[in-house]
Design a protein around this nucleic acid. Sequence first.
DNA 1: CCCTATGTTCCCAA
DNA 2: CTTGGGAACATAGG
Length: 259
Amino acid sequence: MPELPEVETLCRQLDATIRGAALVAIVVYDRKLCSNDARIGKKVLGARRRGKEILIFLRQGPILRIHLRMSGRLLWKNDGQEPPHTRCKFVFDGGSLHFVDPRRFGTLAACRNLEDLPAVPDPLGEWMTDAFIRTASARRLAIKSFLLDQNVIAGIGNIYACEILFQSGIHPWRRTADMTRGDWIRIRGAADAVLKKAIDCRGTTISDWTDLYGRKGSFQNHLRVYGREGKRCRRCSSSIAREVMNGRGTYYCPTCQIP
DNA sequence: CCCTATGTTCCCAA
DNA sequence: CTTGGGAACATAGG
C-alpha cells in the first residue's frame, strides 16, 4: 500500500532497470484495468514519480501512468514466473514488469504530455513557501487531513502523515488555522527527514509490500507511532493513542503532540 | 460473523 | 463554499 517513499523506491529501480529497453507489449489479464492487449514497440526514456503515481515515458509515445492505490505492487520478473493477482504485465526486451494488485483498486492510464497532469507541490521539493503558508492558514481543517489532501501536497499517505506529525510534535487534530509559522517550518523539516529516511529504507513493509525485486523495506523498524496503539512512546513512555479521522486509523502520542 | 487495511472518489449533511 | 462522515470499490487476514 504504497505512499511516496515506496513509489519513489519503485521509480528509481524501474528507471535503472528499463531505461533504454523497448516496451514490446502490454498483456492484460484484468479487463477492469484496461480493455485490450497492446503492442507498443517504443523505447523507454525513463520512469519518474509524480505524487503517488508512477510515470513511464516512452519515446514518441504516450506517458504511462500507474497508480497502485491500496494493494498494488510492481514486480520485475525474468524467470517466466507469473505472480498471483497479476492484473497486467509490461513485456520488455529483457524481462517483464508485473502489475500485481489483489484488491484491484489500482489504475493504469496514459497521457500525452506532462503538462496534461495537475501540478501539485511535492514534499521533497520547495513546497513550504510563504504563499503556501498563507493559503493553508486560511483553512481550518485538521492538519492531518490537510497533509493527506493530494491536491494540496502530493505523496503523503496515512503512515507518513502520522509519523511526520509525531516528529513535528503537532497533534493530528490541530486546525490548520491554528498553526504557527514555526509549526509549518517543523512540518517541513519532519516531512523531509521522515520521507528521506523511509526512502533510504526502501519503504515500509507491514504486511506484504515489496520493492521491484520482491524485497521488503525496513522503515517499519523506525515507526514511532503508526501501528503502535497502547505501546510506550519512545520519547516519553506515554501510551500511544489511536483514534479514527476521516475513516483512517490515526496514531499519536497524547503527551508529545500538543493540540 | 466481526474488524482492519500504506488510497481515492462520490454523495450527503451541517 | 468548507468540512467531515459514510459508503463504495474488492480482497485478504486476524
